[in-house]
Simulated assay, not measured.
Amino acid sequence: MPIPQTFEALRTHQTAEGQVQSRLETLRLDDLSAGEVVVRTRYAGVNYKDCLSLHGRAKIIASYPRVAGIELVGEVLASSVASFEPGQAVLVHGFQTGIAFDGGFSACVRVPAAHVQAVPQGLTPHEAAVIGVPGFTAAMALERFIELGIAPGTGSVAMSGAGGAVGLLGTAILARAGYRVAAITRRMAQEERLRAIGAHEVIDAAVLDAAQRPLEKPRFAAAIDNVGGPMLSWLLRSMADGGAVASVGNAAGNSYEGSVLPFIMRRAQLFGIVANAPVEQRKRLWTKLAVEWKPDMAAVLPHVQHIALGALMEHSARQLDGASSGRVLVDFSR
């Protein structure tokens, strides 16, 4: 397929007064940041970080104008390096994509070759897009748990923010890897859905509204926290001896209150995850996500929403307001 002369993109600008505005535009290839590989975008995942960028709600984008979108899956249209060839299915995430380099919210992208990875055998392009950054984030946390000796038989793994994309994919991936998952959500109407994707237990996040103690009942061997704030504090206080918490998100805020007691009395560990891993780790984890950690797609797909690029601004506003759930993909065939 030839490179299109023009294509549609959602481009974000900043005015002289500092106001951030995002709008649909018709672009040419030379309007995009430089790169050796030209990709026709098939799917672009919509993450909370992207929504903040589009509406100027946080200082994420490094320079303007910029096409946001921190991840994409598509097909190579042209490449000046031998490692990629036209028609090859590829994925891109991390490496400041959508931040310092133009990202996925464009029907065509130009990407540095070092930022591009082939879709691994065992995944279709659509499955790779569904997993995307949320699933890769969960995989990074899971690999760290294993390194710390937290095996499937050690105890339950808590997954906060279970109604969102990270929670959805994290629950499915942990279950596929053999772990008992305790999904935490304020939307208890979703209990049946969460059990269908692999949760053994669903906990009402209203537990945070109860009286809090310096140390709670030890109930989790590990946790992936996508929320931050009081949830992160509660999870740390609820760790069993030697438990570990992966902090991967901050939907409830950047700070949390806590004490040293979980670390001293129960040897708890807290570590952070950002889905911008070194190349070798990317290849290793995507290979696992394509085989032994591949989520049950039949269970996950009913909770994946596809939208057109033209609907992204409206959707992203709802996502920032907490009015969306599950995984959302911009589908460029729409």
Rank of each mutant, 00 (worst) to 15 (best):
A183M: 04
A323P: 07
R186I: 09
V37A: 03
P295N: 01
P112Q: 04
R327P: 02
N276I: 01
V130W: 07
S83M: 08
H115R: 01
H55K: 02
F136I: 05
K217T: 15
L27H: 04
S63Q: 14
V274E: 02
D204P: 06
N47Q: 07
M313D: 13
L142G: 01
D30S: 14
N276E: 06
L169D: 04
H13D: 04
V76F: 01
Y64D: 07
V90S: 03
L32W: 01
S22K: 00
A151Y: 15
G178Y: 05
S325H: 12
G258D: 04
A44K: 02
G98Q: 08
D296H: 04
A100D: 10
P65T: 06
G103I: 00
A275H: 09
T41Q: 04
P2K: 09
L329I: 08
A189W: 07
V92Y: 02
L27I: 10
L208T: 00
M140D: 03
G74Q: 02
L10K: 08
Q14Y: 02
A68E: 11
L270H: 03
F84E: 01
F84R: 04
T97F: 01
E143F: 09
V202C: 10
F7D: 14
S79L: 00
A58C: 12
E85Y: 09
H315I: 09
G228M: 01
V133R: 08
D102W: 03
R11K: 05
K294Q: 12
Q21M: 14
H13R: 06
V330E: 01
F332V: 09
H115D: 11
A251M: 12
K217Y: 09
N47E: 08
L123E: 02
V20M: 06
V37N: 05
